[in-house]
């Protein structure tokens, strides 16, 4: 089967057929074992969310539901309580959407302009600012969160949606700028020179030449930002008020609240619901997601 045997045995005799070589059993066996480890939690979430509470108490968390019920999903979405509010996760979902859309747009817009300026219009000091920006990606957020609270309060944005949008734009900027800078650096300088000879200026070249060419990287940036912003917890809890809490914060409050009887099926339904948006993005985008995190991960 493998190239190896092919090369050694070559033209002599028929090609040996060995699907179950020891090598293959080892390779596929290990991969399957790991696949089970990675898939198990997903499976547990799904089956638990489809069981009733009596079945959960009696049975085994890994076994499929005997009697499928969608009640936990309904309850998680529209009835689960956080504190005094009992309108379910739906509020958090819509809050997250409200946060997600402007944050994604603003952060990508600003980062793409940064990347463009840094790659094609370098000015004195621009590389220094960029170096600070990239180093900033490694600074623990904890050291910056309090002064940002003060700045936002001074600007009258603390606790508001736009305050959080600003925070997401700021903390997404290093990686997004890097992404766009590297992409624009890859666009030949001569193209940029040609456009200047043709009389296009800073914004003209950006809008008419660069942006139309950067659709692939915009998609990658969107995937990164959507999952990143959706999954954020820390900024949501610090910079917004309870009625604007994103879905992750609300989920944690529902599941880890100490009052009342624990309804594990509702908790798992709520958890799955929160994970659904990034999961959908992940499975739709496929290779682009990998490209995005690879671009973000392997710096330089």
């Amino acid at each position: 089967m493998t190239d190896e045997t092919n090369l050694v045995d070559g033209p002599r005799g028929p090609k040996p057929k060995r699907a179950f070589t020891r090598r293959n059993i080892f390779v596929y066996g290990t991969l399957l074992l790991f696949a089970v480890y990675y898939l198990l939690p997903l499976w547990v979430m799904v089956v638990t969310s489809l069981k009733g509470m009596p079945e959960i108490r009696m049975g085994n968390i890994f076994s499929p539901p005997v009697e499928v019920t969608f009640q936990p999903w309904v309850k998680a979405w529209s009835e689960a309580c956080t504190g005094i509010n009992c309108d379910g996760l739906s509020r958090g979902f819509w809050n997250s959407i409200k946060i997600l859309i402007p944050s994604t747009i603003v952060s990508i817009l600003i980062a793409s302009i940064n990347g463009y300026a840094l790659s094609k219009w370098r000015f004195k000091g621009s590389e220094t600012f960029f170096a600070i920006l990239v180093l900033g990606a490694f600074i623990p957020y904890q050291i910056m969160i309090y002064p940002i609270v003060i700045l936002l309060r001074e600007a009258g944005l603390y606790g508001s949606l736009w305050g959080l949008v600003l925070v997401h734009t700021i903390f997404g900027m290093p990686i997004m700028t890097l992404l766009f800078r590297n992409y624009f650096t890859g666009i030949p300088d001569e193209l940029f020179k040609a456009a200047r000879v043709d009389g296009a200026g800073f914004w003209g070249i950006f809008i008419k030449i660069m942006l139309p060419m950067s659709l692939p990287i915009i998609v990658v940036a969107m995937i990164l930002q959507i999952t990143g912003i959706w999954n954020d917890f820390l900024f949501g809890v610090i910079y917004t008020k309870p009625d604007l809490y994103p879905m992750t914060v609300q989920l944690n409050n529902i599941v880890n609240s100490v009052q009342g009887v624990k309804e594990y099926n509702v908790n798992m339904a709520a958890t799955l619901l929160t994970g659904l948006v990034p999961l959908v993005i992940y499975f739709i985008s496929g290779k682009l997601f990998v490209r995005g995190i690879a671009a973000g991960a392997v710096k330089g």
Binding site: V44, T248, N252, T274, Y282, V290
Partner: peptide
């Protein structure tokens, strides 16, 4: 296989923490 190994990375730490708390 690659999709299976990577999908948890797309999830929030909150989701991950709650699932494993349950398991």
């Amino acid at each position: 296989f690659r999709s299976i190994f990577l999908f948890p990375f797309a999830l929030s730490f909150i989701v991950t923490g709650l699932v494993w708390q349950w398991i």
